[in-house]
Nucleic acid binder design. Structure first.
Lengths: 147, 147
DNA sequence: CTACAAGCTCAACTTAACTTGAGGTCAAGC
DNA sequence: GCTTGACCTCAAGTTAAGTTGAGCTTGTAG
């Protein structure tokens, strides 16, 4: 089989839009993997592009690299992740993502809808209360939103 | 009219769940305001609780303090923000929040649904493409997601 | 009226996520 | 065969968002 062309760090940087230094950094943190040429240069498989895309999107919504790294650990090390592999990751994140989505909706809609309370009493403010409830769920299967 | 009781920094910390040092920090960054007693101690109006609640929720979904501070500038300085004021803030954020919600959904659903591409070609990966499109929208009314 | 918990300021430390720079290697075109 | 741009490593610097600590002041409960 024709071996799928591997990518240099510069090519990955260009195609993914992140700096070479960031790719080195992600590798040091175990988020992506490469192998080396005889001359010690990095070469990446295509799946690195998906990983980087996910890293970027996840970061934008406030997920830390540590959390992403942890999620990525469900992916296989020695072969290109397939449908099932990515599916597993998605499932692992679903709850946390749903939570964040609801937080965002709270911000978007709550700011409009929750005006009645005027926060004269914090106890009656939906924004605050939902936060409380979620906070209390702690000490469980550790939520994504650590920060 | 009976003046609404003002809160000390310790009371705000307890009710909002953030540390006193964080409140000092927010104040230094212009996110919240206080006035001082004759003895130089901070006193806060009730609306500070809503501000802090918003700060916390916003941060959790990846909005920086700088961005929150900017949004808060639409709020009046010398009186307690009313329905209209908060509404304005909500409106200012709506686009950015919608964008983040879609990013989150992309992560949640895209991870499941966008598996077909396997990222053999980055150009065909929805995750990546949507990112590109949004990136290209740049240089406009400056999006929230700076980072 | 006094003890002591709660406040105050300011400087320094911390963690995350990178970037920058120095000093040296690899490889592809002329 | 040499030059030039892409790579390499490793250390140090940067920004955001706080926390910690020292040294000093306030205010309230007994």
């Amino acid at each position: 089989m024709a071996p799928v062309k591997e990518l240099t760090v510069g090519q990955v940087a260009m195609r993914s839009g992140v700096a070479v230094s960031a790719l080195h950094f992600y590798e040091a943190r175990g988020l992506i993997r490469s192998h080396r040429t005889s001359g010690n240069q990095r070469r990446y498989g295509r799946d690195v592009l998906r990983r980087v895309a996910i890293i970027r999107v996840a970061q934008e919504v406030g997920i830390s690299l540590a959390e992403i790294a942890q999620a990525f650990q469900s992916l296989p090390e020695e072969r290109t992740p397939n449908r099932e592999d990515w599916n597993l990751l998605s499932t692992a994140w679903r709850d946390a993502l749903d939570h964040k989505i609801s937080q965002l909706k709270k911000l978007r809609d709550g700011l409009t809808d929750c005006i009645g309370c005027g926060c004269m009493s914090i106890d009656k403010c939906p924004l605050r209360n939902k936060e409380d409830r979620l906070a209390r769920e702690g000490t469980g299967a550790r939520r994504l939103a650590v920060r």
